[in-house]
Design a protein around this nucleic acid. Structure first.
Lengths: 205, 205
DNA sequence: ACCTGAACACCGTTCAAGT
DNA sequence: ACCTGAACACCGTTCAAGT
């Protein structure tokens, strides 16, 4: 790699490293232009030169983190249809929840921390961080599909929010009593949610 | 009502009306302090006096809108687009859940009955009945829309199940701590879910 | 090509001062 | 008690100017 190329990357990389570090220190960190630029030791203008919007910066740094953390993420396996991959990823979010008694155990913790009484501000912060991470994870998957053209144009944030709500619903349903096996209708529901996200919006008025 | 009380309310009401109007004109409107204050013809300080944070203002105006808008079962009111009617019905399911402390209260009951420990068979039966009723209610709405041709052919049961999962997700999210107002993204999510149900299935590869 | 930093047009919140 | 509007401490983005 040529020297000039190396030099040209150092500033961009310092920005990415600074942002990733800040996110590591506090997953709920705000990553404002000035905060990241200061941490990286560059100007806001330089940051904007490399990352035209904050959203682009955020996406880039998260992609970096998740690529590092989950290189075998099934979202990248193009031998499988996009919808199946996304369903698989969402299913993996649900997997640790388990079913029945184990699922109740998980929700018991949630209950005691956030529902039993007015949560402490520390508990609130912790929940913000968790929710934000969940949101970012789904956004990462959607971004990956968007990159390969499998996702119609549109706001990724709101579609990720939608999928997370579905995940929350499925998660609580795993813990509540049910007549039939949850897991069967769960797959069906996941595919409905994923299809609605992967399909072009209704050609509405 | 005393004159002084009347006078004291007019400014607060103007703020609420201004905010509601702006939201009516554009549901994605930003409702900044200055924009609402200007529209209401009051100062930012006055707005802050009545509504200590933007979050409080947002919650208040949205609660007012829903209370005003949801008196009867609107599924049969063909003067309104099918999707709006269905969203409205689903919103009415959510309405009694309330937000924040009240929502936690509702989930506390659910927790104690079904999650705290292995539920008694009586509790299980009770939950089956509730879940079945919820399912039937949504199925009823979907059938009504199918009768008038507003719903594509297909299995109503699974689509109702899907919508109920979304409702469960939204319901638990009302009780958990959130950074922004839940109610705004809630509408968005409801429309996404409803559109996916009302749209013909993706023309599959 | 890359970078600087001032400037712009916004935020939400606070607060001394008025009535 | 209610209201004003300036001030504060932030945002993200733009851009003329430098190297």
């Amino acid at each position: 790699m040529a020297d000039s190329e190396n030099e040209s990357r150092s500033s961009r990389d310092r920005i990415l490293i600074a942002a990733a570090t800040m996110l590591g220190e506090n997953p709920a960190a705000q990553l404002s232009v000035r905060a990241v630029a200061a941490r990286a030791g560059v100007s806001t203008g330089s940051l904007r030169y490399h990352f035209p919007t904050q959203r682009v910066l955020l996406d880039t740094v998260l992609a970096g983190i998740y690529d590092l953390v989950a290189p075998g993420d099934p979202i990248h396996d193009r031998s499988i249809p996009a919808r199946d991959r996304l369903v698989e990823c969402l299913r993996q979010v649900l997997a640790p929840v388990e079913v029945g008694e184990r699922a109740r155990e998980a929700w018991r913790k949630t209950y005691e921390s956030f529902l039993a009484s007015e949560p402490t501000s520390a508990a609130r912060e912790a929940h913000f961080a968790m929710a934000r991470q969940a949101q970012q994870r789904v956004e990462y998957w959607l971004s990956a599909l968007a990159d390969e053209g499998a996702l119609p144009d549109g706001d990724i944030t709101r579609r990720a929010r939608f999928l997370n709500t579905v995940l929350n619903g499925l998660s609580i349903e795993r813990a509540l009593p049910t007549k039939e096996s949850v897991l069967q209708s769960e797959t069906d529901t996941l595919y409905m949610a994923v299809d609605s996200v992967l399909s072009p919006p209704p050609t509405q008025r």
